[in-house]
C-alpha cells in the first residue's frame, strides 16, 4: 500500500523552493516554528489542539532534516517539480560511473584490510571534493531559470551524489573500526 505523500518541506517551512538554501535562514525558520509549536506553549489547550500542535511540530522537524541534507533537498525539489516521481525512478547509473565507483570501493576495501590510514585519507579527500563539486553542480542545474532543460543532468548528478554519500558512509564505518 503506497504511503501518503509527505507535505512539501519548502511550503511547510515557508521557504522559497531552491537548492542553494541559506542555511542560517533555514535554521532560524526551524527554530521559530519549533518554538511556536512546542508542547509547553500548548499545554493549556484542548487535547485536540495539543495533538495538532504536536503533529505539526513533528512535520516541521522532519522538513528541517530533509532540507538540511543536500541529497534529500534535491529529491524534494525534483518531486515538487514532477521530474522524479519517487526515489529510485531516476535513470540507471551510467556504466562509467559504476566502473569508477567499483574501483574506488575496491581501493577502499584494500585500504581497510591493510589498515592503511594514508590511503584511506587520500581516498576520502578525493570523494569529499567530488561531493562538494556535485553539490555545486546541483545548485547550478536546479536553480537557474531554465532548469527544466537540465532535468536529466540534475537526476544524474543526484545519483552520483548518492554514490559519493555511500562511499563516505563506508569510510566512517571503517574509521570507527580502526579506532
Amino acid at each position: 500500500m503506497p504511503e501518503p505523500a509527505p507535505p512539501d518541506p519548502f511550503s511547510l517551512l515557508g521557504l522559497e523552493p531552491v537548492f542553494r538554501l541559506d542555511e542560517a535562514v533555514l535554521e532560524a525558520r526551524h527554530r521559530e516554528l519549533a518554538a511556536a509549536l512546542h508542547p509547553d506553549r500548548h499545554h493549556a489547550e484542548a487535547p485536540r489542539a495539543r495533538r495538532q500542535a504536536l503533529g505539526a511540530a513533528i512535520e516541521v522537524n522532519a522538513a528541517f532534516r530533509q532540507l538540511r541534507d543536500p541529497v534529500r533537498r534535491a529529491e524534494a525539489l525534483l518531486v515538487r517539480r514532477g521530474w522524479a516521481v519517487a526515489a529510485g525512478s531516476e535513470p540507471r547509473p551510467a556504466p562509467e560511473l559504476l566502473m569508477d565507483v567499483m574501483e574506488q570501493r575496491e581501493a577502499l576495501a584494500v585500504a581497510r584490510r591493510a589498515r592503511d590510514r594514508a590511503s584511506l585519507e587520500r581516498l576520502t579527500r578525493g570523494m569529499v571534493e567530488r561531493e562538494a563539486a556535485l553539490v555545486d553542480r546541483l545548485g547550478e542545474l536546479l536553480d537557474e531559470p531554465a532548469a527544466e532543460a537540465h532535468a536529466d543532468a540534475a537526476l544524474r548528478a543526484l545519483v552520483e551524489l548518492r554514490y559519493t554519500r555511500r562511499f563516505l558512509d563506508e569510510v566512517r564505518a571503517i574509521e570507527d573500526e580502526l579506532d
Binding site: A87, G88, R92, L97, L98, V101, R162, Y163, R165, R166
Partner: peptide, 13 residues
C-alpha cells in the same frame, strides 16, 4: 555485468 541501484548507491558486478 555491472549494475547499480540509483536509489541507494549499491554497485554489483
Amino acid at each position: 555485468g555491472l549494475v547499480g541501484a540509483p536509489a541507494c548507491g549499491d554497485v554489483m558486478r
